[in-house]
């Protein structure tokens, strides 16, 4: 077993690489001094300043609202797309469908942002909508790439799901929609939740696409962070980052606990049986 030590060394190095920058951000968010080089003692004044930064708070509120709308719509569309891919076999146009659903996962943001902007401008000229850019255009842009991520998450769950419960309900005379709502949806609920959270995070995080498709007066949180980061290191941003990390860690903890306490998922990965 001693052969594994270099491997574990590499693992430790990798985790250090991933976590040290984040830890430093957290530590320096409590630094009294404005300078990153000097430790001026423990202080929470940057958090107080953060909470008084009206521009930043407005942007954060806008971002959260966009992220919530985005996540909700993306979960609906992404789940429909996953249903299509898992349940409808080789339908006509499937190849194109899959291609279009995979592309947003890797497509550079600058391309998505620019092309959507050109679309919105063209649409505005032809049909008069969207009238100006802001909340709705950013939300549409975010939904477009978020649904691809949701589809990946839900698809994995759906294709490894035990279908015998659905078949039993069907045999007992349940309608397809009833089966879907009462059996399938509860079974894939964890995937829907993680898909929603993923979509929410992706939207909250996006700088590039939102910059292209936003208009005057709709500045999202990443845009404010970006312009202040370009000015150099700011302790307020450290404080913001720490709040971000705390929320994420809390969410992961709650999700982990609730999943651990909840009912165990059925014999996933094995079932499928006679359905195909």
């Amino acid at each position: 077993m001693s052969r594994r030590w270099p491997l574990y060394g590499m693992l430790a190095f990798g985790y250090a690489f991933l976590y040290v920058p984040v830890l430093l951000l957290i530590i320096y968010s409590f630094n009294e001094s404005r300078l990153v080089t000097v430790w001026g003692g423990f202080s929470t004044k940057w958090y107080a300043e953060l909470l008084q930064n009206q521009q930043l708070l407005d942007a954060a509120w806008l971002s959260v609202r966009i992220a919530a709308v985005n996540a909700t719509v993306a979960v609906i569309l992404g789940t429909l797309a996953a249903n299509a891919l898992v349940r409808y076999g080789r339908f006509r146009g499937r190849l194109g469908f899959e291609l279009l659903l995979t592309a947003p996962l890797v497509m550079p943001d600058v391309i998505i942002g620019l092309s959507l902007l050109l679309l919105f401008v063209a649409m505005q000229q032809m049909i008069g909508w969207p009238d100006g850019r802001g909340f709705s255009t950013i939300a549409i842009a975010h939904i477009t790439f978020s649904m691809a991520y949701v589809a990946v998450v839900v698809r994995a769950r759906l294709s490894h799901m035990d279908r015998s419960l659905e078949e039993a309900a069907m045999d007992l005379g349940a309608r397809p929609l009833g089966v879907y709502l009462q059996i399938t949806l509860p079974l894939i609920a964890p995937a829907l939740l993680s898909g929603w959270l993923l979509a929410f995070t992706l939207s909250l995080d996006d700088l590039v696409i939102a910059s292209f498709v936003s208009g005057p007066g709709s500045t999202t949180l990443p845009m404010v962070v970006y312009s202040s980061v370009r000015m150099g290191v700011s302790p307020q941003i450290n404080a913001l980052a720490t709040l971000f990390i705390a929320v994420v860690a809390l969410a992961v903890l709650v999700a982990g606990l609730s999943l651990g306490a909840g009912p165990r998922p059925g014999p996933a990965r094995r079932g499928r049986g006679r359905s195909q």
Partner: peptide, 23 residues
């Protein structure tokens, strides 16, 4: 886990580490 925190902020963390009077 780090993937769930802001991409922008993770990149920003490196400015404080790498700059000439940085960590």
């Amino acid at each position: 886990l780090p993937f769930w925190t802001s991409f922008l902020i993770r990149v920003y963390a490196w400015i404080g580490i790498l700059k000439s009077n940085g960590l």
